[in-house]
Nucleic acid binder design. Structure first.
Lengths: 162, 162
DNA sequence: TATTGTTATACTCTATAACTATA
DNA sequence: TATAGTTATAGAGTATAACAATA
């Protein structure tokens, strides 16, 4: 396709910047609440939420967590170290694969997650869903979920020219 | 009427997480390109873009830039220092208000901006507008622009807690 | 050999508080 | 007194590369 050199039009630019601005402001607001109430960064919250809400067992492998939440393995090791030191997760050698490490949320981790969630919800509602109706939320989710899938399947590596 | 204690429903949660995930992945992809091509961080790109594209004069005051782009004044001083050292902006005492500082983009700054923009566009199109149609982009912008306005209507970050 | 995860390290970014100067 | 901006500083987070252990 020859549109590689075509600039984004005004509508696309507007959508792009609105998306980035809203997400940035929202993350900033949410991070403050997480820090105040649970002494958590957003990444740490993501990790706890994934273990405590998304995973039926409360456990997941390091690599899967890294792929889902963080952009490098050493970054995850760092964050997991903090969470473990705080007693919110445990790390144990994986059963099937001796190289792997299984991360599990602890009771204390679930407690912190439960303590943080109501205020978190309140911030998100105040920032986002004061302006967006229920059907707006549905439209937004329907628009962005496929984008996320596309991004996760085709890494940004594709944008790097040789 | 949103109950303060009611958790977000599944649709709202989906919209929230999709928004945060997409913006995070997109920012990551875009930052890589900006770093590779122009040796710029995303914040630095925002500053240059605001001066070079949004402002007719190519100049703006520090406080206005801080409110628009960065979350603390010292953060902006740091970033402006880097950009100035790189020759991409200049800082000069403001004419009307001797306390103020006027930031202006230089020719070199415009050159870098111009050099970075095509690849930037390419990444955004590949990540975002491969999945979103033209009308999708319009819907997204229409949904999120009011959200941004609402978020920005809160007290500016530069005026907080002094 | 490839993959999992950790470590060592270096660097970027951000925020808070104290400070100077102008209004 | 209040505001604009800088500085000093400290802390959090991230990525890269080298490494050990297992597949």
């Amino acid at each position: 396709m020859a549109d590689e050199l075509t600039p984004l039009d005004a509508t696309q630019l507007g959508a792009y910047f609105a998306l980035m601005d809203v997400a940035g402001l929202l993350r900033h607001a949410v991070e403050q609440q997480l820090r105040d109430v649970g002494d958590l960064s957003y990444v740490q919250f993501q990790l706890l939420a994934r273990l405590g809400l998304n995973s039926p067992t409360g456990s997941e492998r390091m690599t899967d967590l890294a792929d889902a939440v963080v952009y490098s393995r050493s970054g995850l090791t760092y964050q997991a170290g903090l969470l473990e030191k705080a007693g919110l997760i445990t790390r144990a050698p994986s059963a099937e694969d001796e190289r792997g490490v299984t991360v599990s949320i602890t009771e204390a981790g679930r407690e912190v997650l439960g303590r943080v969630l109501p205020g978190h919800t309140e911030v998100v509602r105040g920032q986002l869903f004061t302006t967006l109706s229920q059907s707006d939320a549905g439209v937004l989710a329907d628009l962005l979920s496929p984008v996320r899938d596309h991004m996760r399947s085709a890494p940004p590596r594709s944008a790097r020219r040789r």
